[in-house]
Design a binder for these strands. Structure first.
Length: 463
RNA sequence: GGCUGAGUGGCAGAAUGGCUAUGCAGCGGCCUGCAAAGCCGUGGAUGUCGGUUCGAUUCCGGCCUCAGCCUCCA
């Protein structure tokens, strides 16, 4: 039985989908004005694993991950760059697709963009006005009346009085209550705008997600996900808007992933301490980054460091080493104890560190049995690949992974040259010229190439 | 200030009211021409002070420390 931690009730609970066998999942994607950083990568990878796992246990998942392509930051960045908003967002959407593809993140079933949903957004704002949850402020904005919505603060565990007591609530004279938030912003000169019953303007920050999610998945759907920082106010406001407009319950399960940290501090745009995905991928294979993300539970924080990526590389090397040189087979083993334990880990709120531990035990079993019984080892290898696939790992040809090396931009010897040296060294070994054999091995090692003499001859890999 | 979460071996990171996580690193052995990889074995941990209990790292309470949210942020 799959259990998922639900932020709404602050505990794990058995997952029961609204429609049997089907899951509607919406994840807040990116605001596209810059490259993906490691924090974005974490959201993408974590929910990719959620989708893969749900599908692996038989659910038909409709996965929606939006793109926010209109907001203050985008407008500002486009202005700074002297390019149009369309050019800017197109560029970063393209970049995001490149990054996620490298990371092995499957495309969502729908990838709606805010600017494609203006009619729906306007309709929802009108519904909120009609239902008495919103008002037209004297500056032309349409604002949400937070105090009218029962249960505001349930998701983030905040109470209205506490929020009011906070010193950091923005002051805006047009709002009846400082906590009210903007649904529709009246256009300022030279800003992009759309026609609406309240004059030209553009959507507020939260409404686009309400519009996109309910359109793609219906007014009431199963799971909504995103980073912890979206819990408040973004998701809190989404609930207020959606339920206020539709009159229906919005989402059953809210999932929030933890942050990526650097030196015990949140990685974020505003702190400027972020690494972009493409920066990191210059140094490490994408699968290493993916593995690194999955080494901690999705709700925990994940500390970004070179050392942790190194360790990830080594760990993945161990798994690929077990897979290396196994004969091809389609056979499935009779013993499914590894599979069972893997599933126990995953159904416990997607416990990927525990699931990875099972993978290593499987690898040990393969290494143990491969000499006496290579056939059984091959079957176990299949299982390892299959389980790895649920995590989006281990789908590379082992030789390719092991020989691609550490740093992608590193120029080294061509494989042909390495093979030639290996042949020369074999000859030296055959005539017991150990010093020559060791010289070749050492000279390759200084170039990051490790030679390993095995039963089947000498193989090489990069350090 | 309010609220939330966390503190596990050298590092990373799970789990658990009593029994071996796992990976990397260390140590010993096997294997190897020597290595590497692999296998076997091994050392080493639960912030702190109390409480509950036959027994707590695990449950409860205080304290300390850290992070996050309360403002744009995945």
């Amino acid at each position: 039985m799959l259990t998922i931690y639900n932020t709404l009730i602050k505990q794990k609970a058995p997952f029961i989908s609204i429609k049997p066998g089907k899951v509607g999942l919406y994840v807040c994607g990116m605001t596209v004005y810059d490259y993906c950083h490691v924090g974005h990568a974490r959201v993408m990878v974590v929910f990719d694993v959620v989708v893969r796992y749900l599908r692996s246990i038989g659910y038909q998942v409709t996965y929606v991950r939006n793109i926010t392509d209109i907001d203050d930051k985008i407008i500002q960045r486009a202005k700074e760059n002297g390019e149009s908003i369309e050019q800017l967002t197109a560029r970063f959407i393209q970049a995001m697709h490149e990054d996620t593809e490298l990371l092995g993140v499957l495309r969502p079933d729908y990838e709606p963009r805010a600017t494609e949903f203006l009619p729906k957004i306007i309709e929802m704002v009108q519904q909120l006005l009609d239902n008495g949850y919103a008002y037209l402020a004297n500056n032309g904005d349409v604002c949400y009346t937070v105090s009218r919505f029962n249960g505001y603060g349930n998701l983030s565990g905040k109470r209205l009085e506490e929020l009011r007591a906070g010193e950091r609530v923005e002051v805006n004279e047009a709002k009846q209550d400082p906590l009210d938030f903007v649904l529709w912003k009246a256009a300022k000169p030279k800003e992009p705008s759309w026609e609406s019953p309240w004059g030209p303007g553009r959507p507020g920050w939260h409404i686009e997600c309400s519009a996109m999610s309910t359109t793609c998945l219906g007014n009431h759907f199963d799971i909504h996900g995103g980073g912890m920082d979206l819990q408040f106010p973004h998701h809190e406001n989404e609930i207020a808007q959606s339920e206020g407009a539709t009159g229906e319950s919005f989402v059953n399960v809210w999932m929030h992933n933890g942050f990526v940290r650097i030196n015990e501090e949140k990685m974020s745009k505003s702190l400027g301490n972020f690494f972009t995905v493409r920066e990191v991928l210059k140094q490490y294979p994408p699968e290493v980054m993916r593995y690194f993300i999955l080494t901690s539970h999705y709700r925990s924080s994940l500390n970004y460091s070179e050392q942790n990526l190194e360790t990830a590389q080594q760990a993945l090397t161990r798994l690929y080493t077990a897979l290396r040189g196994l004969p091809q087979t389609d056979q499935v083993g009779a013993d499914d104890s590894f599979q069972h334990r893997f599933n126990l880990a995953m159904e416990d709120d997607f416990n990927t560190p525990e699931a990875l531990a099972v993978l290593f035990e499987l690898a040990r079993e393969i290494n143990k049995i491969r000499v006496p019984d290579v056939f059984t080892a091959a079957i176990l290898g299949n299982e390892l690949r299959q389980l790895g696939d649920i995590l989006g790992l281990l789908q590379t040809v082992p030789e390719v992974f092991l020989q691609q090396g550490h740093h992608q931009d590193q120029v080294g010897l061509a494989p042909m040259e390495i093979e030639t040296l290996i042949v020369q060294r074999q000859a030296a070994r055959a005539r017991k010229d150990w010093s020559e054999a060791d010289r070749i091995r050492l000279s390759l090692k200084t170039q990051g190439i490790l030679l390993e003499d095995g039963d089947q001859g000498t193989t090489w890999r990069k350090e």
